[in-house]
Simulated assay, not measured.
Amino acid sequence: MRAELPLAAVLLTVVACQSPTAEATAGPSGVVTWAASADRMGDGIAGRSYRLVVHTSVGGTDLRIRLSNAFGDRPITFDSVYAGIQQEGAELRPGSNRRLAFGGERTVTVPAGSTVWSDPLPGRLPAATDLVVSLHSPDAGGPASGHWMALQQSYATQGDHTAEESGAAWTVPTGSWFYLDAVSVHVPAGTGAVAALGDSITDGWQSTTDLNRRWPDYLARRLQRADTAVKGVANEGIAGNKVLADNPAQSALNRLERDVLSQPGVGTVFLFQGVNDIKAHTGVTAEDLIDGYREIVERVHTAGKCVVGATVGPFKGWHEWDPAAEAVRQEVNAFIRTSGAFDAVTDFDRILRSPYDPARMLPALDGGDHIHPNDKGMQAMADAVDLTALDCDTIG
């Protein structure tokens, strides 16, 4: 058996040529180690390169990335894509930057509305790595696909500088991820992942930028230390996202397949969403939201996966709160706690609420706007998750 080398020490082995379309359909056989839900961004810029910094969860071998043109209105070509390890800022660890291939080719064209997986990059990627994916498109145009609120500084430049390990050319900072929406690794048999489907709280708003303090980040760190088969975490939160309506971004119902069910190795979906439906004052009732939850649960179960439901947190003090919205939240939370619709329940409301005013978040956990937790609140949420409830093989 050959010894596994660190990513920084290996060269890309070109695999036998196969169709990128077949890659996109089949997907990898590993487990997702990082993900961010794609949305429609501004127009792409021809000749632009991005150096995207992402923090992985589970470690493994044979890294693969997924490029997204889900919201494009035309094909997009990537003619140079590299993966390396961050040294500092846009600078990469010497010897770590390696070219990725797609169906054995250095260039890949992703059709409008599609995603494409890369070939595996031989070598080992440790858990909790600051991975850097650098990509260049000569023909980008029309709506770009990406994740606007990364809470992680990445970099851009004009021209193809993807092969360079120096950060000198990468002079344009960006707080968004472009075109990249997932990373997977090959792991030992039986290792799985959880996908957190949510809104801006899951996306990490009010947590500290560049420090990976979103609640799914804290959860990933717990999982790495725990005696559990679930090690990967995919953060599928989008700020402002709703369960039922498509504004802003596609609803949880409409993005469930692409963002969650298609991710490799995901055995459990952690559903923490609903506050945006409730506070929007669009006439959404508790029954409407419950019907949405039931549909998600049914589709996840049909896919052979489990669902953990989380109660909707308090938000009194936020400008859209009123007693009517609070009544809906209480009814929805009663359903989540007692209906038995979910395979397991995490009571985030109980963790976050003030004992003196249960409609309001505990001040020590409040990020300042009375709806988004701070770093301490994010950690408290992650600490409240029963890790055994994330293993679909152990719950029922």
Rank of each mutant, 00 (worst) to 15 (best):
P138T: 03
S145M: 13
E88M: 13
G146M: 15
T129L: 11
A90S: 13
E165W: 11
R93L: 15
T157N: 07
H147F: 10
G167E: 04
V110D: 00
G146L: 15
L92E: 08
Q158E: 09
G103E: 07
Q153D: 04
R124P: 01
Y155V: 01
L121A: 06
R106K: 08
G146E: 13
L92H: 08
S96H: 14
R106V: 05
P126A: 09
V108F: 08
G142F: 12
G89N: 11
H161P: 00
Q152L: 05
S166D: 09
D139R: 13
A128R: 14
V133D: 09
E91Y: 02
P120V: 03
L121V: 06
R106M: 04
G103P: 01
N97I: 11
E91F: 03
P143S: 12
E165K: 11
A112E: 12
T129M: 10
G103C: 07
A140G: 02
A112M: 09
V133W: 12
V108P: 02
Q152V: 02
S134P: 04
L92K: 06
S118E: 00
G141H: 12
L135V: 09
T107S: 13
W117N: 02
A150T: 11
P143M: 12
T162V: 03
E88A: 15
A90T: 10
A112K: 06
G103K: 01
E164R: 02
E88K: 14
F102Q: 06
E165Y: 10
G159E: 14
L131T: 05
A150H: 11
W148D: 15
R99H: 05
D119F: 08
S114D: 07
E165M: 14
A150N: 11
G104Y: 10
E88N: 14
P143T: 12
L100V: 08
R124I: 01
Q87N: 15
G159V: 15
A112Q: 10
S166Y: 12
V110R: 01
S118I: 00
D160A: 06
R93E: 15
R99T: 00
P138F: 03
E165S: 15
R93K: 11
S154N: 03
V133K: 07
S134L: 12
A112L: 10
G95K: 07
R93C: 10
Q152F: 02
E164Q: 04
Y155T: 01
T162S: 06
M149R: 08
E91Q: 11
V108W: 04
P94H: 05
L100F: 02
A127C: 01
G104L: 09
P111D: 08
A163K: 01
E105C: 15
A128K: 14
T109W: 00
G113Q: 00
R93P: 05
E165F: 11
P120I: 04
T109K: 03
W117T: 02
H136D: 09
G95L: 08
P138L: 06
R124T: 08
T157G: 08
S114Y: 01
A144S: 13
A112G: 10
P94L: 07
G159T: 14
S114V: 00
T157A: 15
S118D: 00
G159F: 13
A156N: 02
Q87S: 15
N97M: 14
D130S: 14
A128C: 12
L151H: 05
L125N: 07
V132C: 09
P138M: 05
Q158A: 05
G141P: 02
S134W: 05
Q153V: 11
